[in-house]
């Protein structure tokens, strides 16, 4: 028996509801918009928020790329990509440049994004203040009054304990000088790519039922102290495979003796550099 799905799995009313939420999110950059998150055919934490956003914005002419930790070939990425192939029939790609729509977990591709592209982020916890303040009512109030001293308490504590801001991923940002937002668990290495991004950045948290967005060309600042400015990670060695010195590297232990290798986390970027060479 062949099961017929509505285009992109979700029913049209749900997609419309999510699009309305996304429009509001785009209109108020960084603001968390509640939405009626649906049950999806996979558990929370596997990207249900991102999938619903993708399903709501994807069109028949889109070309979809899905990455997890920068890679197109990890289980999560492969499954989500084949899911959308099945329920939409749209073209898919691993090429950042060719994709019109990119769903991601934990990374922003190294290849610069271009106008017209949409990035969809899977977000486990959209509220950057949550670890410090458990009450949703209180965090909403803090956002309403732009009362963000608390976030700096966390950074202060980082420096007091580690001598530097030890937060290395999900590093909080101020969006458009107004809302404090979580960029999802991307490494802080990717934070600068959020600033004045030519692409539209959409964030979906399925379990927490929240959407937020960073429209193209929006000012995005990573929080810091005057005497402890924001810094991204760096590596002493280049990528062992493509030789890149500008990309985010993963550490791979290669044998039982503890030898290790550093390679690009962005597989598409790494592969295309090697092909060009």
């Amino acid at each position: 028996m062949k099961i017929e799905f509505n285009f992109a799995f979700l029913d049209e009313n749900t997609k419309r509801m999510i699009r309305r939420g996304l429009l509001k999110a785009v209109a108020i950059p960084g603001y968390q918009v509640p939405f009626g998150s649906r049950e999806m055919p996979l558990p929370y934490g596997w990207g249900t928020g991102g999938i619903q956003v993708t399903a709501s914005v994807i069109g028949r002419d889109d070309c979809l790329k899905v990455i997890d930790q920068g890679a197109d070939d990890t289980t999560n990425a492969v499954n989500i990509r084949s899911f959308f192939q099945k329920v939409t029939g749209v073209a898919t790609t691993t090429s950042t440049a060719r994709a019109s729509l990119i769903q991601t977990r934990h990374r922003i591709p190294e290849t610069p994004l271009r106008p017209g592209q949409i990035m969809v982020f899977q977000v486990p916890e959209p509220e950057p203040l949550r670890t410090l303040e458990a009450s949703e009512q209180e965090t909403r109030t803090l956002h309403a009054y732009q009362d963000y001293g608390l976030m700096h308490v966390k950074l202060y504590e980082d420096i007091a304990r580690h001598g530097h801001i030890a937060t290395s991923y999900d590093y909080p940002v101020m969006v458009n000088g107004r809302y404090l937002a979580s960029p999802s668990p991307i490494p802080k290495f990717d934070n600068p790519k959020l600033h004045h991004s030519p692409a539209l950045l959409l964030f979906g948290a399925g379990r927490e039922k929240r959407l937020h967005a960073i429209p193209p060309w929006t000012r995005v600042e990573s929080l810091a102290f005057d005497d402890h400015p924001f810094e991204v990670q760096g590596w002493e060695a280049p990528c062992s495979l493509c030789g890149s010195r500008d990309s985010y590297l993963d550490e791979i232990v290669t044998d039982n003796a503890g030898s290790r290798l550093y390679v690009c986390s962005d597989t598409d970027y790494c592969t295309s550099r090697r092909e060009e060479a």
């Binding site: 009362d147 001293g149 700096h152 308490v153 966390k154 202060y156 005497d227």
Partner: peptide, 22 residues
């Protein structure tokens, strides 16, 4: 959070952003 962070919170809420001064 530490005693220092407790004392600094209000200053940070008022916009102070220099760790050393805090």
């Amino acid at each position: 959070v530490s005693a220092g962070a407790n004392i600094s919170e209000r200053l940070m809420a008022l916009g102070q952003r220099h760790y050393g001064h805090l």
